[in-house]
């Protein structure tokens, strides 16, 4: 199919979309006049019921915990796909990749930044159900802070902290842990993912009960998944390019 045919099909479809959008906009409540009821209801009952002050996290890991498990496995499946496509057995690893960052300022500042970013990420995960944050956000931040190691030092230092052997178990345990916590409730005769540990004290780390552990397993899964993606792309495409540069 040529580009011209595609555009010829797209334009009438766009017109139809415009009509449907206009129709929808006529009937939609004005911006800022949310009608509910779920948002209003959850904002009122989440703290008394679940003792979690961050209602968003209580929705992610408790009220809609089953749905989030599905999302986690989309993540897991996507990472599995990338690994299957990119991780080749007989990959030639150039031993002498001379890509160390020359500037001392960048190295020192970078290493300090890695420490600070890792701490902030762990705090984001740990306090995810108390203050803004949570396993997904903290996990993504944690992965980014580890990638800083590659940016401010060298590929050698990076492969020391982010190797397949270290990351694969984390990814599996993160995804599997979520299910195991859910099944734990079944053993006690309760519905899947029921908060068996009790709600705890609001506003402290000991609030959220089981959801706190689900939160950590999601954080682990997201961080490991993102790091696996980075290692695969760096090893498969960045390293050969860099090796070619130094050779030529």
């Amino acid at each position: 199919m040529t580009r011209r045919i595609r555009v010829a099909i797209f334009l009438p479809a766009l017109g139809l979309f415009g009509v449907l959008l206009a129709w929808a906009l006529v009937g939609i409540p004005d911006f800022g006049h949310y009608r509910g009821p779920y948002g209003y209801l959850l904002n009122r009952v989440a703290l008394p019921e679940r003792h979690m002050t961050n209602v968003v996290t209580s929705v992610v890991f408790d009220y809609r915990g089953f749905d989030t498990m599905g999302e986690e496995f989309i993540l897991f499946a996507a990472v599995l796909g990338v690994v299957l496509l990119l991780r080749q057995g007989g990959r030639e690893q150039p031993d002498e990749l001379n890509d160390s960052v020359g500037s001392d300022g960048v190295r020192i500042g970078g290493v300090l930044a890695v420490g600070a970013c890792v701490l902030v990420s762990l705090w984001l995960i740990a306090y995810g159900f108390v203050t803004p944050g949570g396993g997904f956000q903290g996990g993504a931040a944690l992965a980014s802070s580890v990638v800083l190691v590659f940016l401010v030092s060298s590929h050698k230092a990076w492969s020391g902290v982010a190797s397949d052997h270290a990351l694969d178990p984390f990814d599996g345990v993160g995804a599997g842990g979520y299910v195991v916590i859910g099944l734990g409730a079944l053993i006690g005769g309760l519905p899947f993912l029921t908060n068996v540990l009790g709600p705890g004290v609001p506003g402290t780390l000991w609030s959220g009960g089981s959801a706190a552990f689900v939160n950590w397993s999601a954080g682990m899964e997201v961080a490991a998944a993102n790091l696996i993606l980075f290692t695969e792309f760096i090893d498969e495409y960045v390293v050969p390019l860099a090796a070619g540069d130094t050779a030529g």
Partner: peptide
């Protein structure tokens, strides 16, 4: 406060969309 449900849908979707 704003609706927490749509926020939770958005945040999980952002992370999943990256992978």
């Amino acid at each position: 406060a704003v609706d927490p449900v749509v926020q939770s849908l958005t945040l999980t979707d952002i992370v999943v969309s990256v992978t």
